Simulated assay, not measured.
Amino acid sequence: MIRLSLVGGSHVFHGKFFGAILNGCGEGHAHGEWSVGANAQRIEGARIVKVWEPVRGQAEVYAKARQVDEVAGSLEECAEDVDGVLIPDDVSLSHQRWAPLFIERKLPLFIDKPLAPTHEQAAEVVALAVAAGCPIMSTSAIRFSKEVEEFLFRREETVGDIHSAFATAPNGRLVFYGIHAVELLATIMGTDVESVENHGSPLDHWVQLNYTDGRRAVVVVSQKMRQIGGVFYGTKGYEAFHTTDSGYYYRNQLLHFIEMVKTRKPPVPPEETLRIIDICATAEKALASGKAESLSGT
């Protein structure tokens, strides 16, 4: 049995979903606000055995709702007698602040998207992990969606070599939620972006990605959007899709993390994660400057 700690974010969507997939729902906690993930397929052989929150009461509620054995009294307790640690998004854009202790202990670590709100802060976390020899994983779950997997399988036959693309995400917050659309593009087209332009406005971003080989992609992150998806144009045709099965992609994301716990090999290189953060953060800079901005580099 893979034993995991969950640190922070227990009261937010991802933390609830992860707990439902790994532990199931406690009695009376498959409805209302705790219905998140209740119908998703369970993962056997791994379990959240400890939960910690800065506010202990939140951890106690989570432990009951997601059948967690122990409410830890400290981060140090969360690092004891476990095989890995989950740090879900807590909507603060600073959840990575809990990571250093676990990196020091070399515990395989999942840090929810975004790894950090800036490239510089994200690079600090990655540098700590590399220096310590600690495997870390930080991704959007969208790269593990059924639609992305199926598209990658048939892409050569239906689309061919991709030269242009269009990707969308709702919410309007570029680093916090636009990362889903950017990671969708990165999974399919890579991260070899040299500059970005932002022709939108706050909460309605229209971002052009300029790749070093001449390809172009547009990312729209807007309160007006309702779906995460993309359209890809290639030498043989085009294809459009949007992601729909959250139970599938969150479960698949967790399966990749569990495999990393076993092998200590990240499913996504930290350098790729840094590049994705860099693209998002540079797009915010481009909105402020009104001109094309080059990426910081990794």
Rank of each mutant, 00 (worst) to 15 (best):
E120Q: 15
F17P: 01
D83A: 11
V196T: 06
V49A: 14
E293S: 02
S94I: 05
P114K: 14
K262V: 02
K291A: 01
G230K: 03
A131Y: 03
G229D: 08
F18W: 14
S10A: 13
M1K: 13
I162S: 01
A131I: 00
L75W: 10
A240L: 09
A132R: 15
T298D: 08
A72P: 03
E44H: 14
E293P: 02
A59M: 07
D192F: 09
T263Q: 08
H205N: 03
G172W: 07
Y62P: 02
D81P: 00
V182F: 12
P54H: 03
T298S: 14
S296D: 08
V68K: 14
H31W: 07
V220T: 13
I228R: 07
E284T: 00
G8H: 12
R173Y: 13
S289T: 01
S222Y: 04
H205C: 01
G237E: 02
K262Q: 13
E271L: 14
A123I: 01
K224G: 12
F18D: 02
A65S: 07
L203D: 12
T263R: 07
I279Y: 06
E44G: 14
L115F: 11
V159Q: 06
D245E: 14
P202Q: 01
T168A: 06
R143W: 11
Y238W: 12
V49H: 12
W34G: 07
D81G: 03
E76N: 06
Y248C: 07
E284Y: 00
N210H: 15
A72L: 03
F151R: 06
M189K: 02
M260N: 01
G19V: 01
S246G: 08
I162L: 05
H119G: 11
P270D: 10
L255D: 07
G45R: 09
D69V: 06
I179K: 11
L115H: 10
Q253M: 15
L174V: 02
E124K: 14
G73K: 04
W206I: 07
